[in-house]
Simulated scan of single mutants.
Amino acid sequence: MTRTVYLNGSWLAEADAKVSIFDRGFLFADAIYEVTGVVGGKLLEYAGHAARLQRSMAELGIACPLTQDELLAVHREIVRRNDLQEGLIYLQISRGAADRDFAFPTNAAPTLVLFTQAKAVLDNPKVKTGISVALVADQRWARRDIKTVQLLYPSMAKMQAASVGADDAWLVEDGFVTEASSATAHIISQDGTLITRGLSSAILHGITRLSVLDIARKAGLAVEERAFTPEEARDAAEAFITSATSFVLPVTQIDGQPVGDGKPGPRTLKLRQLYIENKLANAI
């Protein structure tokens, strides 16, 4: 079935949606994006994603052409038009089209695109086995807190991990893990402490990360927001990633070495269960 997509105020069949070759998102990666999960036809953690979108736009000086209420209405309408019961909504907004110039244009109209992806986000087979990660040097730009479409290096890192048989990459900078190629990295130490990197420009401020840390604290887990080393990760009792796409997903192998007993950890699986229960109850 052909998807219906949203482009600058119009609803179009995906084959009919066209963006200018002069769009700065295409020429300069001058654009930001958000991904919102959908389960049961409802939006998960929408308020957090909408707030981060506003922050990213403010950092780049891009103005959204829609109000907050209009943007929520578009999200709900794209779910309805595509009968999306489970999956993702991808939003991208660029500075717009202008003749190629490194200097930002002052009068370009932003390009706003939304499309859906049907995907089984609840019944992920990797939950039962966990994923393997390879450690890869982090060579991205310094403002990772802005959710830009500058995703070439994360894609290269994921492919580098795949070349050695791993499912994903954990990026390492100055001797510490920053994050996964498209998710937040977490470990649970042998004494049961959840450790994840603190917020800064070095990592994306994950919406799922924030929720999981809150859930962990309420469940009685000690939480430390600090950088951790690859050695700490290898010696951890459990490890996992969080994202809007994977929720909470166990990591059972790092650079070919099992994490803990090499199986999804019980605290990780409990956090996944609690997260899903909480977010489904509060979906809109």
Rank of each mutant, 00 (worst) to 15 (best):
A31D: 03
A13Q: 13
S155A: 14
L271C: 11
T242Q: 00
Q150F: 08
G260A: 08
L171I: 07
A233M: 09
L114D: 01
T116F: 04
A233N: 01
H75F: 09
G220F: 05
I188L: 04
A73V: 05
L269K: 14
T116H: 04
T245E: 08
A29N: 11
L152K: 07
A166M: 11
I146Q: 03
S132T: 08
Q150W: 11
G220V: 10
Q160M: 13
V113G: 00
G165W: 09
L213R: 11
L271G: 14
E224A: 14
I21M: 12
V74C: 13
A283P: 09
A73R: 07
S56T: 03
D235N: 06
I203D: 03
I93N: 02
F104H: 15
A216P: 10
F247R: 11
T242N: 01
V5W: 02
L43D: 07
T208I: 05
R217E: 07
S211E: 09
N82P: 03
A244E: 05
V121Y: 06
V136Q: 08
A180M: 03
P266Y: 02
A237S: 15
L91D: 02
E70T: 07
M159E: 13
L249V: 10
L27D: 08
P258V: 13
W170T: 09
A50L: 04
S132W: 06
R143S: 08
S200A: 05
P154C: 06
L72T: 14
P230F: 10
I215S: 00
P258I: 12
R80E: 14
K263N: 09
T268P: 07
A185Q: 00
F28H: 06
R140F: 01
L7Q: 01
G256E: 12
G265S: 08
Q68R: 09
V127W: 03
F22P: 01
I284A: 08
A161G: 11
K263F: 11
L60S: 10
A219Y: 04
A161F: 04
V149K: 01
S200C: 04
D261K: 09
T129D: 00
